[in-house]
């Protein structure tokens, strides 16, 4: 049942750090987060780590395990062999605060830049009517637990600090798509997706989808359809004309 595993955990802050080796007990059924907690309780009381639910629901415990972006609480020890060295490092795309904790404020900044849900002004609470089939598309995206693993993985920002300004990342492009597909949202979000959130940077590699612990089809169901909508708007002369007319008439009134 129990055995001793070899762990290498990144220890340090935003200035310096190192991979430190630990030998630590592992019991049946445990996940990586359990082992990190055992390290805290027995060998490294000041090892910094974020976690809350321990059930894959809150998206706090994101890290890179043997280089793969994962939730520590959902990574079972049984997926490794007993003699494997398990390396745990913080998410690479965000600045380290300490040990496994990173500064994820980039994501909160981007969240704030997405125009909020904009319901029809005259629709009263209690009068909302939507069909299940119509809400399901946005519901898939609302499963997001904001673990930011997709943000961490996307190559547009992973090794390109300079793109962070212009690119909101898969999580928040998906938020734009979610609102765009909300049956009662009245805002047109296509220009913003392209111009403010950098949809054009995405070249649909699907790396974000691969790491999503909620198995949301970010690329196929959010990003590609969003790109199609943007393309439709930009190149469809009818839409273009309608837009012009609408803008003009709304200016007059």
């Amino acid at each position: 049942m129990g055995y001793k595993a070899q762990f290498r955990v990144w220890r340090g802050d935003d200035e310096s750090g190192e991979l430190r080796d630990y030998v630590i007990e592992v019991n049946e059924g445990e996940v990586v987060l359990d082992i990190i907690h055992r390290l805290q309780a027995t060998q490294a009381p000041d090892l910094a780590v974020r976690w809350n639910c321990k059930a894959g629901k809150c998206g706090s415990c994101s890290a890179e395990i043997n280089g793969k972006p994962r939730l520590m609480c959902m990574t079972r020890m049984s997926t490794f062999t007993e003699d494997e060295v398990i390396t745990v490092t913080p998410m690479r795309t965000f600045p380290v605060v300490r040990d496994l904790v990173t500064d994820v404020s980039f994501n909160y900044t981007k969240a704030r830049e997405v125009q909020s849900f904009t319901p029809p002004p005259d629709l009263k609470p209690g009068e909302y009517r939507m069909q299940q089939v119509d809400v399901e598309r946005s519901q898939e995206f609302r499963k997001c637990i904001e673990c930011f693993l997709c943000q961490n993985t996307c190559h547009v920002i992973r090794d390109h600090e300079e793109n962070k300004e212009a690119f909101s990342g898969p999580r928040f492009l998906m938020r734009v798509a979610e609102l765009e597909m909300h049956p009662l949202d009245t805002a047109d979000r296509r220009d913003a997706a392209q111009d403010e959130h950098g949809l054009g940077y995405c070249n649909i590699t699907k790396c974000c989808t691969e790491v999503c612990p909620e198995h949301i089809k970010i690329t196929d169901n959010a990003l590609i359809p969003m790109k199609e909508r943007v393309a439709g708007r930009r190149y469809d002369p009818v839409v273009w004309l309608g837009n012009k007319l609408f803008r003009r008439s709304s200016k007059k009134s």
Binding site: R129, M130, Q132, S138, Q139
Partner: peptide, 17 residues
């Protein structure tokens, strides 16, 4: 109901409520 005005998407009945 107020949550719906904030953007919540609850599961629906057949008649859309």
């Amino acid at each position: 109901w107020e949550l719906e005005t904030y953007g919540a998407l609850f599961d629906r009945t057949k008649d859309g409520r």
